[in-house]
Nucleic acid binder design. Structure first.
Lengths: 217, 217
DNA sequence: ACCGACGCTGAGGAGATCCTGAGAAGGCCG
DNA sequence: CGGCCTTCTCAGGATCTCCTCAGCGTCGGT
């Protein structure tokens, strides 16, 4: 397990290096943003520990650039600030976890291990299928760049269908995941598919008779 | 996106329920461990938010039992304790993330979204015989790259034949596996083989007189 | 060549499945 | 309170599927 630590506090870095090595990690170090970005891009690390406050380029920038370059290495962000919006910002930008300084070493290792356990997949913040783009956090949908005005339920339905693109999704499954699942009548699903088709065009959602619906790219 | 919240603090639960619903989640609630475990096992939730301190059975137990039962639903643990070892315990036990109370709602939602980004389901493999490709998940068939439009029954019949390619499959066997098997008349099979031939070409399914049908690669 | 068994197919109806317009119920905001 | 939005139910109508049936073609054996 190879880990990159990007932080400019030499003392902390040295402590992490020693501790993580003792835990069996191979540790590389960078002391500023640009260097960290380069190293993380060039080398295939299993995880990156990244301070938010960095000389040259801050942590958010580094993560954003990494993701733009298609690097999906898990990133654990460190911050001195305890403000909650920083946390959300860090995650939305593409970081995978977040720790507030001061943190305990045990916690860091546990979180790191949790990150490494996750399948190293591309996990973009946006859902894109065909000319549709859905942002779950902002709860917006655009079609060919044009924004679409959807209600909460319509959006939830579309999100589930898009998360399962290229697959036929049954009405009961939709009822289970988009609605409470307590109801019985799948007609609600049909009605809402109708709403979506009216707003987004008939071709967005295909009916698979006897099976369910499908969206394709 | 359907979420199960397991916590015995009614006030907090109500707040979460309202907030998450407003964010577009379908929210179910359990107030104790055993109930939560049952619900999480029986229903295919997209995520579970789980308090560590619970009546009946604590959060660690619940996660452990869930994982033992093969349930891989992402779990976000909540704890009142700030002790660092609790965090490590929770993650080691099979939880996917961890939040310490008091937490901010914004952070909770961000973390939840991060969990939901995990790749959805494992898709079954494609069936390929000759220039025919059948995708069981998408319920599509392509012939030399060209899509074919099949009904449910036609697809089921073709799938069974393709799974038994290079073998002669009897009509009664088809009646048993593709139909309920309650019927007697094998003429249905003949009719449907006819449909498939009309849509896919005469050469796809060969007749073996007195024995049944066969598809070859 | 003839015959019986077997297989194929066109037609059509019953029923399942899906879509949609209308409207009721409830929440939210001014 | 009144209007607007959202969600959901309901029922009618428009498909589409599935299966049956009967007649015809084909094959193999004699």
């Amino acid at each position: 397990m190879r880990v990159l630590v990007v932080d400019d506090e030499r003392g902390l870095v040295r402590a992490l290096q020693r501790g993580l090595t003792a835990e069996g990690f191979a540790v590389d170090v960078a002391y500023d943003g640009p260097t960290g970005l380069t190293m993380a891009t060039d080398t295939d690390y299993d995880a990156v520990v990244l301070d938010v406050m960095l000389p040259g380029r801050n942590g958010y920038d580094v993560v954003t650039s990494l993701r733009e370059r298609g690097v999906t290495t898990p990133v654990l962000m460190l911050s001195a600030k305890a403000g909650e919006h920083d946390v959300a910002d860090g995650l939305d930008v593409g970081a995978d976890d977040y720790l507030t300084k001061p943190f305990s070493f045990v916690v860091l290792v546990a979180r790191l291990r949790a990150l490494l356990r996750r399948p190293a997949q591309v996990r973009p913040a946006l859902l894109a299928v065909g000319d549709l783009v859905l942002d779950p956090a902002a709860r917006t949908v655009t079609q060919a760049g044009r924004p679409a005005d959807l209600t909460t339920r319509e959006l939830a339905l579309l999100e589930y269908l898009m998360r399962n693109a290229d697959r036929v999704v049954g009405k009961v499954e939709l009822l289970d995941h988009v609605w409470d699942g307590t109801g019985e009548d799948v007609n609600v699903v049909e009605v809402y598919v109708g709403y979506l088709r009216r707003k987004l065009g008939r071709s967005v959602i295909a009916t698979v008779r006897g099976a369910g619906y499908r969206v394709v790219g």
